[in-house]
Design a protein around this nucleic acid. Structure first.
Lengths: 225, 225, 225, 225
DNA sequence: AATGAATGAGCGTTCATTCAT
DNA sequence: GATGAATGAACGCTCATTCAT
């Protein structure tokens, strides 16, 4: 069929690619907003297609199935977040600054991309493979945890940070940020920036090296002999 | 059995209640484990009934509908957690001790009731009312947040804790505990106790009044002299 | 159990019969009102039992099945109607008087036993045997039609009534009365007595021998000397 | 077919409409015959789909739900009857002629569309809204009653008809025709045409102005000055 | 005599997927 | 490229019936 319009029998690769990409992007976007709005369970292909303004079959045409579409949603949001957040982190002078900036920048992203993060959360907690296990789930954060661990280790190496388990700190920081988003979603009037600053303070205190006692006359009150 | 002691020949209320309660408890338990295993979306009445070893109709007989069953699941798990954790908190001498104990005790509960907590999480993030909004969701934590806030305020009043936003701290502590559970679920070999102790340290450092500087040139601003 | 109180081991026949009859009557009455209220399709055994204030199993105990219960409903209402209407008809002096009285008396019965007639109508139009055919239906009126036919034939024999097809007249009269009931049920403020009198007039005119013409210029074509 | 004339290559609206309409008509027709055969209560979507030779889901695809399908059945039969009967009435010269023609024409329609009328009756007496009240029921005849009333009033105005309550006459005429159908359905060998002629005679006599008495020697027996 | 518990078939509906056009 | 039509499985739920007590 398609070859009828093309006497050479070949398609112009970039053309197809362009239209194809546009359609896929359009459908992925519709999926993101649909999942964010009605939840993963109720985000049927029919609903997504309706929001995209196309017929249901189009999705099957452009994606191998619902699973691939959902995976593309995740990939799309991931890329988007990374593009927004990573450059800001790279310009920070210290581990402490990176820590603060990470929390504050993600909060900014939340404010501007509520649907993206909501959809990501829905997919993480609900999308399962055929065998019933979560396709993503907390293990999908592995890469993120590893990055944060590196940050903490660097801070510990330079003496900025005290000694602690960097994996636990990574898990906790991520959870703190996620819960900030969830709470704000449920309470739209909640002050997101203030929350982020509180979190930044909280983690800064949690990781920093405690002020050392200065005289023998003032022994530590905790954990001392 | 008891009816032998009942000359009226009538079934006595507690007998009926006993059988009824037993079946309901059995079904609720099956629901908890099914939801924990396959997720909320795939936890159909058929599957729950199969696990309970009864026919599908039995559930409809004992519960008004799936919604009531799920609500009973939540109630059951809630009560269970409260019974395990609350008594331990009441015997603590200080706000700091309550904070530590809370984290450590919930971790213990996790270890012994993995399915209960997993099911609760699934229900919270997926159970929706007819109008499409989450039946529970993060707002279901309100009571919990309020309790933690009280704890923090008390600590601030006595001077144990520094000044911070108690609502943000409550949200974050709960998220930290939840993420500990999620991580351990995904990585069963993860050391839950060690994680909990790390968390306790983390939050203790995050809330405590910083060691005051000791020279007269820099007078303490809080809780001194 | 009861036999414990009866050393002979025999059941007292009349006792059982009395209780049995009372229970059956109670259940039949509950069935009548339930069917009248919610319609045949929604009149489940559970609903009927609830209205009777007994458990569902009781109905199965006293009746072979739902079918027998429904048949008893019909029989009960039939007997009730006959007891109310027949004696009044027997005291009428002429076929015309019987015709009028029949219509007016049935209208009275309607006013006082709305539920009975409504239930009867529901059963007639909905109750089907296993093979899918209506258990009653219009053929259940056969006895009634035959009676009315006899009345018409008698009126024709005595010269009170003109010549017409008595079966068609019977069907039509019965339908006229039924529709009076249905209309009044839908419009409770409708004047039932006035409607009945209109119907009586209508049928009296429809059956009576037309006033014969009195001049020789217009010879009678029917029923003339 | 039509698309051959459509160089744009686009499907044209009427084409789509045609297929859609055809399927809907096919399903409606299957519904009519299923309801007529097994009754409203047993006319499940599964059975209707089986008769239409399609899968159950097709009905859900083309209709919003069972309710919409049933409503379309009513609309379809209504339109069909009106198309068959109304034109014949408009060409009648007198109220009496309209009265006769109405009865005779509806009888003809019955003979040719037994299933349509049977289905309509089933739906009227059984289709209920969510609140339990009949969706149609006798009140659905209101329009019909109003038309017949107009006919009677016109006859009374011109002096063709005697004085009577036109609403009661309308209800009764409709019931007479309906019962003719029901009886014929139960007794297929019944002579429908003869029945209709008897009915026409019956109502003609019921409504016409009685032959006036011609001499004082023959005083009127009813309703005279 | 009566009960509550349990069953299993059937209901209307939703949905991811397939397919001819 | 894109569509609407169709499928079939699974869903939550209702109900007449059966049965041990």
């Amino acid at each position: 069929m398609r070859s009828k319009n093309n006497p050479s029998g070949q398609k112009d690769r970039s053309d197809r690619s362009f239209i194809e990409k546009a359609r896929r992007a359009q459908i992925i976007d519709a999926a993101i907003h649909t999942i964010a709005e009605v939840g993963f369970a109720k985000a049927s292909l029919a609903r997504i297609a309706a929001r995209a303004g196309v017929s249901k079959g189009v999705i099957s045409y452009h994606f191998a199935g619902k699973d691939e579409l959902v995976e593309q949603v995740v990939m799309q949001v991931y890329t988007d977040i990374a593009d927004s957040v990573l450059p800001r982190l790279l310009e920070q002078p210290s581990a402490t600054a990176v820590l603060r900036t990470h929390i504050l920048t993600v909060a900014e992203y939340m404010r501007d991309h509520r649907a993206h993060l909501a959809a990501l959360g829905e997919v993480f907690t609900n999308f399962r493979t055929a065998d019933g296990t979560l396709r993503y789930g907390i293990t999908a954060n592995e890469e993120l945890y590893a990055s944060l661990e590196n940050l903490y280790r660097e801070g510990q190496r330079t003496g900025e940070f005290r000694s602690f388990d960097p994996r636990v700190m990574a898990i906790t920081q991520q959870a703190a940020v996620d819960s900030m988003f969830a709470y704000w979603t449920a309470h739209p009037d909640h002050d997101l920036r203030a929350h982020a600053r509180e979190l930044a303070d909280l983690f800064e205190r949690a990781v920093r090296v405690p002020t050392p006692p200065l005289t023998s006359a003032d022994p530590p009150t905790k954990g001392a002999p």
